[in-house]
Structure formats: structure tokens, C-alpha cells
Write a protein that binds this DNA or RNA. Structure first.
Lengths: 199, 199
DNA sequence: AATTAAATTGACCACACTGGTCTAGAAAGG
DNA sequence: CCTTTCTAGACCAGTGTGGTCAATTTAATT
């Protein structure tokens, strides 16, 4: 169901394909859900719950070092995604398609709030004294974000055509650590002795 | 036509909507194109031609300073996009939907080649001696790419809900320049006197 | 003006597929 | 044995599809 909605959008999702994919009779679907609309709403709630509990609620927002915090967040997200990617795909799909505006009137507001709260918390209480001082800390945070996002999306894109059953994750993680250490070298204060940035 | 294909994909694009949007009779479409498939192929060729001539062919690949080269490329792309955004949207749509695989068998290979050649040329003959030496130059190139990509997509996303008729572009460009100077400060060799990275 | 040719329209077609219903029966439980 | 809960899939009216075609307007040519 989630897959059908995610890949075709609400309007073009076919209940016939759903029951075929699920291997059940058409009657069942409309026995448990009185309409396609109700099914959609149920899926929505399920996905929001899943992502809230398996991803957002797991974030460690106390870690002052932004890079560590962000790295942990990435691992949590990846774990949740690998456990069940469909809620992510479903919500991303509804969000970018703007598919069901009057179907669930306050949906987009809720999604905005969800991500906005997540992001706000993500960027709150960061120890900016770790950063180099000659570039604005917001700029540094952006650079870290964009670097990690860019690396992630390119890595995921590269993995998409692979057989992941016996994939060598270690080298991927090593690559990620390399990226992080480069970021630290570039964006953080030089450790202790002789801060040659001049402050 | 491009808009219809771009926003619905080949299968769900409606020839009825196309003729309505274009304000012509249904007959005309099938007078000039014998089928939806032929129309699609024509659109494809048109878009590839447009992007090749108005974007890829305009790139200045001699500029040794990567950041300047990339900045110019961004401006060229933006100019082409503003002149006619539909080819970009059309090709992006076909590429991500993987919509017409057996319709145009060698399509994806051609698109891969197009972008691959573009990217390869884009990253060839770069003067890496301008970069700081304590981080691998490929890593630096990636960081610049990701930063510019991230900034661009967030800026575009923010602009999408705006009225652009009398938008203040100067502040946007200024923001972009700020980003570039931060990148230069962070990723390039310190100019001349006292290179404190120690080589 | 008369005739031929090109361009244009929209009603129309068979067909595919839609969300949803409903009958008929299988399972389960008492 | 009866009742209740599940389950299946044939079926329905409706909508939209890509594509056709006879009819008509417009343009070109003689």
C-alpha cells in the first residue's frame, strides 16, 4: 500500500494493484477501510508515527559538538530507513507532490511542524566555540549540512543499483569518517597550540 | 507538451490535456505526430539539443580556478534555465522516473553520457595548487560542489513560493558571493605571506 | 473565380482501468 | 447446527485514454 501510494501519488494509486500486490481480494480492502481516502489517512498516521518514534525521538540533542551530533543523527536515520524505508518514501512523496491538500487539510502544516521542530532542535545548543572564528557559525553549520547531505545522496544513489545483500559497509563508513575528519580539519579551530587564524 | 510530460511522466501524460493547454484541436497533434510516442521522442530530442547548446556548450573549461569555473557554470545554467526551464524539468523528470525505458532504448545511456562528459570536462584541468594541501583535492572539489548545490537547491526552494516579478536578486547574489568567499577562505591556500599550513 | 491542396477542428470510438458494491461462500466459534 | 466474522472476485457505472475521421475552414494555384 505504502509503496503504491509513494510511487504513484494518491490520485494515481490503484486499489486494484494494491490488492494484487498484497495477494488479497478486493473485498478485504474495503472491508477494513471504507474508502481509499480512509486507507490513505491510515497510512499517513502510520508513517508519521513510525518516523517520529524511530527517528526523531531517537535524536541525541544534548551532544554539544555539532559534527558528532549530526553524525549520530545520520546513523539513526540510516538505521530506521534500512529497517523500513517505506514511511520515508511515502512522506517524501506526499510532501513533494502536494498530493492530498484538501484530503487531510492540516497535513502539510503538521509535516512542516514535524521537520521544523526536528531541525530547530537539531541546531539548538550547539557549541560554536569549537568552530573557527573567521567564518560565521551559521555558515559553518550550513557547510557541514550540505557536505553530509551531498555525500549521503550521492552514496545512496550509487548504492541503489547494487546488490546490497553482501555489501561492504565498512568502506562506506570509512569514507564517511574521512569526510568528517576533513570537515573538522577545515571548519574547526586548530587544536590548542598556535592558533594561527589569529584569534 | 513539455510541461505535461514533465509533471505527469510519459504514461500519465494526457494528450487531451496537451491540446487543451495548447489551445489547438486534437486532430492537429496527430496530424503532425503520428502517435504520442513520436511526440515524446521529438520532445526528448528538442530538450537534449537545447541543454547541449544553451548550457553544456557554453561552459568555459579553460578557467583553471575551480571556484570561478563553477561559479560561471552556475550563472550559465541559471540563465539557460530562466530562458526556458521546461527542458531541464523534462529531462530531470524522465531521468528520475525512468519512465520510457523501452520507448527509447538508448536514452538513459545517452543521458548518462551527456552528464558524465559534462562532469568529467568540468573537473578536468583544474589547478589544484590553489587548494590547501592538507586535504585531498578531490575532497575539496566535492565540498565546493556540495556547498554550491546545497545552497542552490535551498535558495530555489525558497524562491518557489515567491512572486519573482520584482524580486531583489542582488541580495541573493551577494549571499552567494559570501558563500564563495567563505569557501575560498576555508579551502584555498592562504594567500602568499606565511603559509601556516606548513606547506 | 474556380479549383485544388493544406491545415484545422471536435465529435466519436473501442478500450482500459477506476473506486466501490455485493453475492456467495469459507472459517471459526459456540 | 447456527451465527458471526472473514474472504474472494465478478461486476458496476463512470471516467479518461490514445487515436480516427468526416467535415470545414484557410491558403495557394491556376
Amino acid at each position: 500500500m505504502l509503496k503504491e501510494f509513494a510511487s504513484h501519488g494518491y490520485a494515481n494509486a490503484s486499489t486494484n494493484r494494491m490488492v494484487q500486490e498484497a495477494g488479497i481480494g478486493k473485498g478485504m480492502l474495503f472491508y477494513y477501510f471504507k474508502s481509499k481516502e480512509e486507507l490513505y489517512r491510515y497510512c499517513l498516521e502510520y508513517c508519521i508515527d513510525f518516523i517520529s518514534s524511530e527517528y526523531l525521538a531517537q535524536l541525541d540533542l544534548t551532544e554539544p559538538d555539532f559534527m558528532i551530533r549530526f553524525k549520530k543523527a545520520g546513523e539513526i536515520k540510516m538505521r530506521a530507513y534500512l529497517q523500513n524505508p517505506l514511511p520515508f518514501l511515502f512522506l517524501a512523496s506526499t510532501y513533494i507532490r502536494r498530493d492530498a491538500p484538501e484530503l487531510v487539510p492540516d497535513l502539510y502544516q503538521r509535516l512542516e511542524e514535524l521537520t521544523a521542530n526536528g531541525l530547530k532542535a537539531m541546531f539548538a545548543n550547539i557549541d560554536t566555540s569549537l568552530f573557527r572564528q573567521d567564518v560565521a557559525p551559521e555558515q559553518i553549520i550550513n557547510l557541514i549540512r550540505w557536505a553530509i547531505d551531498g555525500w549521503s545522496s550521492e552514496t545512496i544513489a550509487a548504492l541503489e543499483n547494487q546488490d546490497l545483500t553482501d555489501y561492504d559497509w565498512d568502506s562506506t563508513f570509512a569514507e564517511f569518517d574521512e569526510l568528517l575528519s576533513a570537515l573538522r580539519k577545515i571548519l574547526y579551530r586548530r587544536a590548542a597550540h598556535g592558533d594561527c587564524t589569529g584569534e
